[in-house]
């Protein structure tokens, strides 16, 4: 009997190890394959350069900085709304039918496919609000798509703060806001910020939401001055973005050298990886200052 237990334990452990490996192998394979295929073009010239011949040659800088701007602007729009809504729902909202409807809406919105958000973005931001196809309209679309997920991640971070702290504050006569400001937020901010950055960078890697709301296949790009290169788009301009650029070059099967396509993919992966690492570093820093 005892031997059987040991045997079963060993098998269970190995089966789950295999499952974990199954998860890691494809990820590593994808990354290795893409970077291998992209290796002929990858380099500073490629990153800093401007596309030539409709993406058949040259570099990747305009879509790279475009995606970066997209992340930045969407962050500015959705972070305050998502965080405040999350705080309200977790700390203030009474448990009644109204709150339950909001919660249901949040959950359902998080499950809406991105192409539907894209169409909403066209209708609402591009047409109704008259933003036209622009960086702003695309950022708003990304923001709308991200807010429900942000609310959820913010709530998770907040509910990780022990109830005992809140009780202690209330029982000394602190208001809910005083409690949130002095105790709850300082102890959950790392989780909240990590969620925000992860979610926004994930959304910014998607093609659908920017497809009709502001992404351009190619934009005549002044490559002469440094200022133009660092600040190529304003809120009202159409812009280039990595995910859409990838779609464009991948569509032109024969004209574009393979390395150019994989190069775009590699840069997109790289950018998201960098944004994620940034959020992880930020979380580690804030956690090291954590107070319990």
């Amino acid at each position: 009997m005892e031997r059987r237990k040991v045997l079963v334990e060993g098998i269970a452990k190995k089966v789950m190890l295999v499952a974990a490996l199954c998860l890691i192998v494809p990820v590593l394979a994808i990354i290795a394959y893409i970077f291998y295929k992209a290796s002929p073009v990858l380099g500073l010239d490629y990153l800093w350069g401007v596309p030539e011949g409709g993406g058949t040659g040259g570099g990747i800088w305009p879509p790279l900085i475009g995606t970066f701007f997209l992340v930045l602007v969407s962050l500015c729009i959705c972070a305050p709304i998502g965080i405040m809504a999350g705080i309200y729902l977790n700390e203030y909202a009474p448990d009644n039918w109204f709150t339950r409807i909001i919660n249901m809406a949040v959950t359902s919105l998080a499950g809406v496919p991105s192409i539907v958000h894209a169409l909403f973005g066209v209708g609402a931001f591009v047409l109704t609000f008259g933003m036209g196809e622009s960086l702003l309209a695309a950022s708003c679309t990304i923001a709308v798509m991200t807010i429900p997920v942000l609310i959820t991640s913010t709530r998770e971070a907040l509910s990780a703060v022990p109830m005992a702290f809140r009780q202690a504050c209330w029982n000394m006569g602190a208001t809910k806001w005083q409690t949130i400001r002095t105790i709850v937020l300082p102890n959950s901010i790392s989780g909240i910020l990590t969620g925000v950055i992860l979610e926004v960078s994930r959304a910014a890697g998607e093609t659908a939401p920017i497809l009709f709301t502001g992404a351009a296949a190619s934009i005549p790009f002044m490559a002469d001055s440094l200022g133009d290169k660092l600040m190529p788009y304003f809120l009202g301009d159409k812009f280039m973005a990595l995910s859409y650029h990838l779609k464009v070059v991948a569509d032109k099967l024969n004209d574009v050298p393979e390395a150019m396509k994989y190069g775009t993919a590699a840069v997109l992966i790289g950018l998201i990886f960098i944004l994620n690492s940034f959020s992880i570093v930020l979380r580690m820093y804030l956690r090291s200052r954590k107070k319990w």
């Binding site: 022990p162 005992a164 702290f165 009780q167 202690a168 504050c169 209330w170 029982n171 000394m172 006569g173 602190a174 208001t175 105790i183 102890n187 954590k290 107070k291 319990w292």
Partner: peptide
Amino acid sequence: AELRKSVGMVFQRPNPLP
């Protein structure tokens, strides 16, 4: 707030703030 000022509470599990 005033009420809770004059009526304080101590809990089962010590809950000092972090």
